[in-house]
Design a protein around this nucleic acid. Structure first.
Lengths: 215, 215
DNA sequence: AGCTTTCTGTAGTCTTCACTATTGTTCTGA
DNA sequence: TCAGAACAATAGTGAAGACTACAGAAAGCT
C-alpha cells in the first residue's frame, strides 16, 4: 500500500490502547475548569479514561502534562489571535479584532472559566515553581506583543508620537487579563463585549489625541 | 480603680500567652504573600509564633482564620477607599482618588502581591467552597459599589444619560482587578500609576461625550 | 490550699496527594 | 511459535496536608 498511515505503529511492544490527543484534550478541559493544583491525578485519570501508570508513561509528570495542555490551549485558541493582532496593519482594526476575539474565547461556550494561562496557576504551592515560571513567561510574551504593536502604531503615525507606549500596552493587557477575572465571577459573553467596547473607546481616545495634543 | 482596662482578664483559666491581634496580622501577611491554600498551618504557626492547638483554640479553623484576616485587610486598606469613592461628590474626582489609592495600595510596600480578595483564593480545591463564596461576595460588593456610583453620576448629570452604566462600572472593575494580576507579574508602583492614568482617560472620554453624542 | 478552667506543647491521627513496583497482557519480529 | 518489548491494572509508598488527644502548666474562685 502506497498510502502512509497517519500514526503508524512503529514501536515493538504492545500498542497504546487510548488516544493520546483525546486524553490530552480531556486533561486540558479539567485543568481549565479546576486549575493546575486542584486538578488531582485521580480526577485527571478519570476524565482521561486511563490509569496513573499510563498517564505517567505518556506524559511524564503532572507538570509536563499541564504544560502540554497549555501548549494545546494556546495553539487552539490564542495563537491566531496574537498573530492577527500583530499583523493587522491598522492599529484600531487590530485592537477591535483582538478584543472581540478575546471576548469570544473567554466568554464562549468551550469553557467559561477565564484564560488558563492567567488563572490556572495563581497562588500555587511551593512545588510548582516550574509551571509558574512557564506561565509567567507566556504572560510576558503577551505583554511584549502588545507593547511592540503599540510602538509600531506610533511609528506608523496611527498613534501620537508622545504616546506612553508602555503605559497603553500595559493597560490594554490589564483589561485583557481582568476579563478572565470577570468571567470567573460570572460575567457573560455580553458583559465581556461591553468591556471590549469600552477598551476600544479608550484606544480611540488615545489615537484621537493625534491632532489636539500634537501641538 | 475606676479606669476600665482595655482587655481585662475576665475568664477563669490560664490566660492566653500570645497577642491575638498581632498573630492575626502575621497570618494576614502570610496569606497575602502565599495565598489561602499554599499557606500551610505549619507555616502559619511559624509566622504567628504559636502551635496548632493555640491557633485552633483562638481562630477555629484555617478558613475562619483566613476570613478574619480578610476582614482585617479590608478594614485596614480598602474600607476608606470605597467610602470616599462612594461619597466624593464629583465623579471624576471620585475616580481619580479611587484609582490613585488603589495603585498605592496594590503597588505599595506593605505586600506587593496584589489584592488578597482577588488573588488569594483563585482555583482553590473543592474543600474551600466557603472561603471562595465569601470572597466572591466581597468582589460582587465592589462591583455593586462601582455600579451605584456610576448610576449616581448619570443622575447627577456628570455622565451622559445614555451611558452604559453596567458596562462602564464593569470595565472599571476589570481594570482594578487586572491591576492585581499586573502586580503579581512584577508591575511597579509606577506602572500601576500609568494604568490608573489611562483608566482616568477612559472615564474622562466617557464623560466628555456629554455634548457630542447627546444629540 | 485545693478545685476548676483554660491555655501550651508534643506527638500524634486520618486523609489526600503525586507517583510507582509489580504482575500480567498484547503487540512486533524472527 | 516463541522471545522481547512496551502498555495496562491493581495496589500500593512516602510525604504533606489539616486537625486533635493528651498531659502538664498557669490563672481564678472558694
Amino acid at each position: 500500500m502506497t498510502m502512509q498511515d497517519i500514526s503508524p505503529h512503529k514501536s515493538k511492544g504492545r500498542p497504546r490502547i487510548f488516544d493520546r490527543d483525546a486524553a490530552l484534550r480531556s486533561a486540558l478541559d479539567l485543568f481549565w475548569r479546576r486549575g493546575y493544583e486542584p486538578a488531582s491525578i485521580a480526577e485527571l485519570c478519570s476524565s482521561m479514561g486511563i490509569n496513573p501508570p499510563s498517564l505517567y508513561a505518556a506524559f511524564g509528570s503532572k507538570a509536563q502534562l499541564f504544560m502540554e495542555a497549555v501548549n494545546c490551549y494556546e495553539a487552539e485558541y490564542w495563537d491566531s489571535v496574537w498573530d492577527s493582532m500583530a499583523l493587522t496593519p491598522d492599529f484600531l482594526d487590530a485592537m477591535e479584532i483582538f478584543f472581540r476575539d478575546a471576548a469570544k474565547i473567554l466568554g464562549g461556550g468551550d469553557a467559561p472559566c477565564g484564560c488558563l494561562v492567567i488563572l490556572a496557576a495563581t497562588n500555587v504551592s511551593a512545588g510548582a515553581d516550574e509551571v509558574d515560571k512557564a506561565l509567567q513567561a507566556l504572560r510576558k510574551e503577551g505583554r511584549d506583543l502588545l507593547l511592540r504593536r503599540v510602538k509600531k502604531a506610533i511609528d506608523d503615525g496611527q498613534l501620537p508620537k508622545n504616546t506612553d507606549a508602555k503605559g497603553l500596552s500595559l493597560t490594554l493587557n490589564t483589561i485583557l487579563e481582568g476579563m478572565s477575572l470577570a468571567v470567573r465571577d460570572g460575567a457573560s459573553r455580553r458583559d465581556l463585549d461591553r468591556v471590549a467596547k469600552l477598551a476600544m473607546q479608550l484606544v480611540r481616545g488615545v489615537a484621537s489625541q493625534q491632532d489636539t495634543k500634537q501641538a
